[in-house]
Simulated scan of single mutants.
Amino acid sequence: MDWLYIVYRECVALLSQGGFVLWGILLIGAWMYTIILSTWLALRPVEEAIRGSRRELTDLKSSEYIQREYTIFELDQLAWIGRRLPVIGVMVGICTLGGLLGTVSGMLVTFTKMASSSYGDPMEKIAAGISEAMITTQAGLLFALPAAFAYAMLVVRVRRVHSLLEQHLSVDLKNLSMKGIGNA
């Protein structure tokens, strides 16, 4: 149980050394990963709905009707995902830039402490600012790098779902033309 207290104490020390920028990175990162995970999980039922949407030849009415049905489905099920992707991309950039902001902030703390007084150990003055700079840089990169990879995988998956939807539309339109209805 002592190890749990040690981990807690280290986390508190790390959060206090990282400054206000670290808190911002943590909040944005948590929000970003929540959006990534919820979007990833929401794509599965959409894929299943597309795969289960095979129409019988008797259900095929006209090409305009079929295209309208697919467009409505796409707007209902996939449009919100398309709106989330740019937000995720921006959040990845914010985490990276937040790390850079923390670096600059830590360096400012370092130089301010070095210039403010001649008392005390100079290494102690430098260490506090460098610590803030490195902690926030590391946190920003630790959040941004896996998120960038997850974002790329999510974009590929969304494209695959769009492609699947287009394939189903194409098959239904082909079946309609084989049935002889055409644009009637």
Rank of each mutant, 00 (worst) to 15 (best):
residue 168 H to I: 01
residue 46 V to L: 05
residue 167 Q to V: 12
residue 80 W to F: 07
residue 142 L to P: 03
residue 182 G to M: 11
residue 45 P to S: 09
residue 101 L to H: 08
residue 60 L to W: 06
residue 59 D to V: 05
residue 61 K to S: 12
residue 113 K to C: 04
residue 63 S to C: 01
residue 149 F to V: 09
residue 58 T to D: 14
residue 143 F to Q: 09
residue 116 S to G: 03
residue 68 R to L: 02
residue 61 K to I: 12
residue 77 Q to G: 11
residue 153 M to L: 15
residue 176 L to P: 00
residue 110 T to P: 04
residue 66 I to W: 00
residue 175 N to Y: 03
residue 164 L to I: 08
residue 77 Q to T: 11
residue 10 E to Q: 10
residue 184 A to R: 15
residue 61 K to T: 14
residue 15 L to Q: 08
residue 17 Q to V: 06
residue 177 S to Q: 13
residue 97 L to K: 12
residue 137 T to R: 13
residue 93 G to E: 00
residue 110 T to F: 06
residue 51 R to Y: 14
residue 32 M to G: 08
residue 31 W to K: 12
residue 1 M to D: 10
residue 68 R to C: 02
residue 71 T to Y: 12
residue 39 T to H: 01
residue 98 G to I: 04
residue 76 D to C: 12
residue 128 A to P: 01
residue 62 S to I: 07
residue 148 A to D: 01
residue 34 T to I: 15
residue 94 I to E: 01
residue 98 G to Q: 02
residue 40 W to T: 15
residue 36 I to C: 02
residue 78 L to H: 14
residue 39 T to P: 01
residue 81 I to D: 10
residue 27 L to H: 07
residue 112 T to K: 15
residue 66 I to Q: 01
residue 69 E to F: 01
residue 40 W to E: 14
residue 170 S to A: 11
residue 15 L to K: 09
residue 178 M to I: 15
residue 108 L to P: 08
residue 178 M to T: 11
residue 152 A to Q: 03
residue 123 M to S: 05
residue 29 G to A: 06
residue 46 V to D: 03
residue 85 L to D: 05
residue 23 W to K: 04
residue 130 I to G: 03
residue 49 A to M: 11
residue 67 Q to E: 10
residue 132 E to I: 11
residue 84 R to H: 05
residue 69 E to Q: 03
residue 75 L to V: 12
residue 30 A to W: 13
residue 159 R to H: 13
residue 67 Q to M: 03
residue 136 T to M: 12
residue 182 G to I: 08
residue 53 S to I: 01
residue 95 C to T: 15
residue 49 A to N: 09
residue 34 T to S: 13
residue 60 L to S: 05
residue 164 L to V: 08
residue 86 P to H: 10
residue 21 V to S: 01
residue 102 G to N: 05
residue 120 G to V: 03
residue 62 S to N: 09
residue 19 G to E: 00
residue 50 I to K: 00
residue 121 D to H: 09
residue 151 Y to N: 07
residue 12 V to K: 00
residue 98 G to D: 02
residue 10 E to C: 09
residue 119 Y to R: 14
residue 81 I to C: 09
residue 132 E to T: 15
residue 12 V to H: 00
residue 46 V to F: 03
residue 147 A to R: 05
residue 181 I to R: 00
